[in-house]
Amino acid sequence: MPGNSMLTNHKYIAFETILIKEIRRFTRIWLQTLVPPAITIGLYFLIFGNLIGGRIGQMGGFDYVDFIVPGLIMMAVIQNAYANVSSSFFSNKFQRCIEEILVSPVPNYIILLGFVAGGMARGVAVGLIVTAMSFFFTSLHIEHVFLTLLVVLLTSMVFSLAGFINALYANTFDDISIIPTFVLTPLIYLGGVFYSIELLPTFGQWISALNPVLYMVNTFRYGILGTSDVNILWALFMLGVFSAGLFGVALYLLRKGTGLRQ
């Protein structure tokens, strides 16, 4: 006789099922998911790193190409973690196959963790591809391996959660492209990917301090190059707060049935 909640082992199987389904999805359509970021970021490396970077000189005490590599890797991680969850979850809603999970006994937090883990998997996969490509343009060595991995995982989690919330509210495919275009892209470009915020006037630095991407990019840059515009502990704290906050919001919306249950 079953109890009134799913067995822990069964919850793990359900989580693994969602994760495998998500990984199967983005690897099946690799031409849409894994190749484009590699080409885009490769062009950034070539143009901003090699061609223009040589004329820019140094930034933050490093060759410009070395300075932008961590930011570009982080940009790929952010965009792909977000896009994976927002498009996959919305597509599940659109095709109504999300009902497969909703009628099953899988708890809401397992559904959330499964999709977020799928987004993190794509974020990390793209991050690895882009990192491998960066070796064609510069020779990186990672200063703080554990911190670098931690930042990649936390960042991809934050943006997977954000993508999940976007998909919950979305009613059309347009709704899942608005946030990346009008919010995510400006945050990334103004988040210190291409420049050190020391170049900005004081007011600009204050405004930049409100941008969560700044903390992610700089902590990741610190992990690779050993230099950062922000305090690392504070940045990690902020990442933790964003993760917990977005997880709480996503779970609340899921329990409420926003965009899913009538």
Partner: peptide, 19 residues
């Protein structure tokens, strides 16, 4: 169900949701 998944995968995936 997803129009892009294989028939067998759809049923096996559903089994996974039930542990």
């Amino acid at each position: 169900f997803s129009q892009f998944e294989k028939v067998g995968d759809i049923v096996i995936t559903q089994a996974g949701y039930y542990g």
